[in-house]
Design a protein around this nucleic acid. Structure first.
Lengths: 212, 212
DNA sequence: GTCGAAATAGGCCGTTCGACCTATCAATGT
DNA sequence: ACATTGATAGGTCGAACGGCCTATTTCGAC
């Protein structure tokens, strides 16, 4: 009873390397997807046990693909892969129905262990599994994106990164321009930035905001 | 006479997958580096035939690592790996002494082919090899970052992304503040940005400037 | 039950920004 | 030879920005 795997990553190099490794380790790699769309299609047609899914992919990101797969086939276990651990992305992925989360800096052995773990545990325990993987992530990666900026400040930053002016941010958040500027002033201190440009760039580097 | 390889990439997952694949294909993987510093150290101590080097790595980027390795051991052939094809990065990598350039979306077979190619050809031909790899890149990837902004404008953008104010950019480039503002105005039109924040973000998305 | 942090909002003030305009010079291409 | 483009530099002006204040409310923590 070998475990049937589906790999989803936009980089063929990683996909193929991963396939050989997983086959070596005794898994049955039933398919490879190069984007989110393909991942959803193949998941439905191939009915794998586990999907190893990259978060950043063309056409449809891994989180959305996970959501759609889980809607149709709730039995499939999705383990997310990502470059850097990012609290928000992790949270979103788990909400989308992923049972595990691995950074790309982990070893093949850790991937195997994670896959076997999610297959061993029943659905009721998968939340704990995810939690323990998160702990792992926290230990090995950034000590913490740990609330450097508050939730509201993060919203302001994201809107500015999305192209909004101070006035537009105020309108979108239903607050006064002055409050937006207050949040920005606070952000400048925390991120050691002298203007909105540097603040947004720092936030991008730290994974607080995302380039769309 | 097996070809001795050194792998340099900050993601263990890709590194290990690549190692298994390359070993399968008959190469001798003599070492793995997780950052630029380590790559330089290992290249010197292990004296590999070819280094597969990722461009984006902590501590020291792949381009700089390539430069240093080639300074000390000019015989080593460095093949660069990158997520997305970016004209500027490619040009910089070749100037640094890389003999080849591959996007991570290529197959293991293509990597093997590229490595065997750079080992077959003598130094005189390696420029052609690089050129043909570039052609490959141009076909498959972005049609062109194609001089959207001028060289000077790009310098201005990069300095602003690096944290310089208008005044500081002027000082660094030995031009007046007014000229910097002129360049910026031109950039805003070309990138359809309304301020420096959006201009820099667009430039980052387009790969024109790089976050350090 | 108080203390602190977060979110809200305002004023004031000097600096910077960006839009719109002209202008020169060198290089490049037709 | 002429047109175009890039790089340089300047002026003006209103809007936006950021620093430095105070102040209220709410909410969770201790």
């Amino acid at each position: 009873m070998t475990i049937r795997l589906l790999l989803a990553d936009d980089h063929r190099m990683l996909r193929e390397g991963l396939r050989r490794s997983m086959v070596d380790e005794g898994f049955d790699v039933v398919g490879e997807a190069a984007d989110g769309d393909e991942a959803v299609q193949l998941a439905m047609s191939l009915q794998p046990d586990v999907v190893l899914m990259d978060v950043t992919m063309p056409n449809m990101d891994g989180v959305e693909a996970t959501r759609r797969i889980r809607e149709v086939i709730p039995d499939v276990k999705v383990v997310m892969l990502t470059m850097h651990a990012d609290r928000d992305v992790v949270a979103e992925a788990l909400r989308a129905g992923a049972v595990g989360y691995l950074v790309k800096d982990c070893s093949i052995d850790e991937i195997c262990e994670a896959i076997r773990m999610v297959m061993r545990e029943d659905a009721a325990l998968s939340a704990d599994v995810a939690a323990s993987m998160l702990d792992e992530v926290h230990r090995t990666d950034l000590p913490a994106t740990e609330h450097v900026v508050t939730k509201r400040e993060e919203e302001v930053l994201q809107l500015i990164a999305d192209g909004c002016s101070t006035v537009e941010v105020a309108e979108r958040l239903f607050i006064s321009q002055k409050t937006v500027k207050n949040h920005l002033a606070s952000i400048y201190q925390k991120l050691d930035a002298r203007d909105r440009t540097q603040a947004v760039l720092s936030a991008v580097r730290m994974g607080i905001v995302h380039l769309t």
